[in-house]
Amino acid sequence: MSAPTAPPGAPPDAPAAPPPKERGRLTGYWLALPAAGWLLLFFVVPFYSLVAMSLFDPEGSALTGYEMTWHVGNYVDVLQKFYGPLLRSLWYAAIATVACLLLGYLLAYTIAFKAGRWKNLMLVLVIAPFFASFLVRTLSWKLILADEGFVVDTLQTIGILGADGRLLATPFAVIAGLTYNFLPFMVLPLFASLDKIDPRLIEAANDLYASPGRAFFKVTWPLSLPGVVAGTLLTFIPAAGDYINADLLGSPNQRMVGNVIQNLFTNQGDYAAAGALSMILMIIITVAVVVSIRKAGTEDLV
């Protein structure tokens, strides 16, 4: 095999141009450099800072400063003190995710198969709440569920709530706020999966004498599982770490782990406990994501 020659017109001693394949390989690395720098600056560095913070000496404070002592006992301490809000957060997030799945699947199915020429308009309506801030949307629910509001008054009139019954500052209010705020994160992946299903597959199941229910569970549901997994992850992860809904719609009895972390960081200045609790929540969510992806696979995730 002959050695590469210099380009035509170049001096005899000019270096040979690199092969096209090598140039293409280097181009890929150069294109990935901005994204790698972004991840390094805004993910790796903060993550390292959080891990280091979780291992600070618990005897320190925001005023006297903290010393890195690799105090792993911080994790045990925060689990013993705050296991209640942590379990409550996972429970609320799980209920809200199931509620989003039930409501979101019905809505996504309707948009994908029944909306016809209104499909694009309905998709716009799904994402329309994002045009208002998260805080404004949650405050709106506070007005809707207020003790003097129409909803509570109606439920008291028909006897579902007692004379002193209320919805605000209850687990129902927090879960309702989580469900409303994160419902679009469930609907969009589900719609993407359902919209890719060939309707002829469902027609074939009907031609083979499958009932509508059997055709759904044998054809539609399995083919939509990538959207179910993606929507579940996109809903459960932010819901588990949320603190706005519990703060505005709940009471101290509905405090979630996000409220505890926010209080430790901003009010108490206990950075070691806040960092350890944040890491525990991150580890739990990471394990849940890994297990879900290993069971569902990643090839068809939308």
Rank of each mutant, 00 (worst) to 15 (best):
P212W: 13
G213K: 12
G213E: 11
R214M: 13
R214H: 14
R214F: 15
A215K: 05
A215C: 12
F216T: 02
F217Q: 09
F217E: 10
F217D: 08
K218N: 15
K218I: 12
V219T: 14
V219A: 10
T220E: 07
T220H: 11
T220W: 06
W221D: 07
W221H: 14
W221K: 14
W221Y: 13
P222D: 12
P222M: 09
P222V: 07
P222I: 13
L223H: 05
L223R: 02
S224E: 02
S224G: 09
S224R: 00
S224N: 00
S224F: 05
L225C: 09
G227W: 04
G227T: 12
G227R: 09
V229P: 02
V229F: 13
A230Y: 00
A230N: 06
A230R: 02
T232Q: 07
T232I: 06
T232N: 08
L233G: 08
L233S: 08
L234N: 05
L234Y: 06
L234G: 02
L234F: 15
T235Q: 03
T235K: 00
T235M: 06
T235I: 07
T235V: 15
F236R: 00
F236H: 07
F236S: 04
F236N: 00
F236C: 08
F236P: 00
P238Y: 13
A239N: 09
A240C: 14
A240P: 11
A240L: 10
A240S: 15
A240Q: 09
G241D: 06
G241N: 02
G241Q: 07
D242T: 08
D242Q: 12
D242G: 04
D242I: 08
Y243R: 08
Y243T: 02
Y243E: 09
Y243M: 10
Y243D: 11
I244P: 01
I244Q: 05
N245M: 11
N245V: 08
N245A: 11
N245S: 12
N245Q: 10
N245C: 02
N245H: 03
A246E: 03
A246W: 00
A246P: 04
D247P: 00
D247N: 06
D247I: 10
D247V: 07
L248K: 00
L248R: 03
L248A: 09
L248E: 01
L249N: 07
L249I: 03
G250E: 01
G250A: 09
G250Y: 13
G250V: 09
S251Y: 06
S251N: 11
P252I: 10
P252D: 09
P252F: 13
N253P: 00
Q254L: 01
Q254V: 08
Q254Y: 11
R255Y: 01
R255H: 04
R255G: 01
R255C: 04
R255M: 14
R255F: 09
M256Y: 00
M256E: 03
M256F: 04
V257E: 01
V257W: 01
V257S: 03
V257Q: 06
V257L: 06
G258M: 10
G258L: 10
N259S: 08
